[in-house]
Write a protein that binds this DNA or RNA. Structure first.
Lengths: 247, 247
DNA sequence: CGCCAACTTGATAACATTCAATGTAGGTGG
DNA sequence: CCACCTACATTGAATGTTATCAAGTTGGCG
């Protein structure tokens, strides 16, 4: 039985299901919404969730779709983005395991979501999750805390997009990836950079060419090294930190 | 007895207090956190809040200050901003009456807050407000909803900062101001634009010169008219909308 | 009335984009 | 197994949008 959905433009109607309650063995349980729940409460959560696997490049949902499903990333990297009518794209965030997807209140998604790498997610019907939130205020609070820190990250990103130059953007980006990896228990240096130059560009408000040139610059000045398999070694964190803040 | 604090670099130790419970007559009660509360519940809220008046240009708190106080704007306009070491500034948002200030979870503020116009705010000790949230999950949910919509606005702003040109930014800005004014029951057209060119520039990731030139352009092409007292008439919403989306 | 800050306008320059070509790696089929 | 194809990445040259530098102008306030 195949667990993975096929890549298609929208999420297909039939999703793979892992029948055994997966939460107990969930690798990201300690860092996501679920961390607010006790073992018996987790059961109720497990009852309403379906585990979904997707290939790289799979569109989970698109901006404007009815937002009746929420997700929690358990493996892989996702990207969220908004489009302008002429195709210009802004990636508003990359999601790592433990991140929550669909924190909005509206009945339609405010952005599209697509996998950067093969990924696994927990899928919740929105109605039933909201019901759970009523009963478990701790989970409500946990979700609020996650929204808060997302908001803080969004403000940092506004500073980056509005006021930093290309070098400062790339330096900030690498440090942020490293920092996030560290907090989740992944290698922080060399840091894994699974997304394409084009994705990085659309996240940082630049073009692929500028991203590529700036990486080359940083490599030439020996601040970073580009390794195999989308890994980047940060050779001098101090200098990188200074670059990131424009000091 | 003076109700207003003096303008100073940081909030002064002594704040003005309005002793009569102000919530009943509060002009923004219906659109803020308080809307989640019943009359008797409001009493408990009123017990822990202090009303504060500030002049234009008053710094309420600065990035990095201990975040032991939360605010709710009841009159006037505030701005939130982050600074880079060399003085570059990004305004992350303008707050209108009804907006909540300090939605963060951290123990220090992630941004500075300053009044654009003379303003009035409700001030809450963070500890006690959090206690109230325990007892009133409805208020918790209301706060979560506010955080969610702020997050959505932040994502719109990222699209603007990362991918829109100067004209599109100004058009988007004017439409957003008009839209927000409308939802709060203020005049939507002509729309009130109380902030300086420099504030607008730092919000939109531009310079004052570019903001000024772009206003002139839009005025010359008769899409907008600049009126007395910081008012802007939007002469053609359709065209403005198209400009904003780059269509 | 005069001063100062905010705004507008103009000339020049810089950084990033655009357009274009080449280089590289992974996957497929002959 | 290798040639080929495609997607992604890098590099180069020219262009352009916005920033910077520099005067002027307006308007509010003492």
């Amino acid at each position: 039985m195949a667990l993975a959905e096929h890549a298609c433009s929208r999420e297909s109607a039939v999703a793979a299901r892992i029948d055994s309650a997966p939460c107990n063995a969930c690798p990201v349980r300690s860092m996501s919404v679920c961390s607010a729940l006790e073992v018996d409460e987790l059961k109720r959560l497990a009852d309403i969730l379906v585990s979904v696997k997707v290939d790289a490049g799979h569109t989970l949902f698109a901006e404007g779709d009815g937002a009746d499903t929420l997700f929690n990333v358990t493996a892989g990297t996702m990207k969220l983005y908004k489009l302008l009518p002429d195709g210009r794209r802004q990636i508003t965030g990359f999601l790592l395991p433990g991140d929550f997807l669909g924190l909005s209140i509206n009945d339609t998604y405010a952005y599209s979501a697509e996998s950067v790498t093969p990924a696994t997610l927990c899928r919740f019907p929105r109605r039933r999750l909201e019901g759970l939130l009523e009963d478990y205020p701790k989970m409500q609070r946990r979700l609020f805390a996650m929204a808060s820190s997302e908001l803080a990250a969004a403000q940092d990103q506004m500073l980056l997009l509005g006021r930093k130059n290309a070098k400062e953007r790339i330096a900030s980006f690498l440090l942020m990836l490293s920092e996030r990896a560290k907090r989740r228990g992944y290698a922080e240096n060399p840091v894994h950079v699974p997304m394409s130059r084009s994705d990085i560009a659309d996240y940082l408000g630049l073009t692929t060419e500028t991203v590529s040139r700036t990486f080359t610059q940083l490599k030439t000045s020996r601040v970073i090294s580009l390794l195999e398999g989308g890994k980047v070694r940060l050779n001098d964190l101090e200098i990188l930190q200074e670059l990131a803040e424009g000091a």
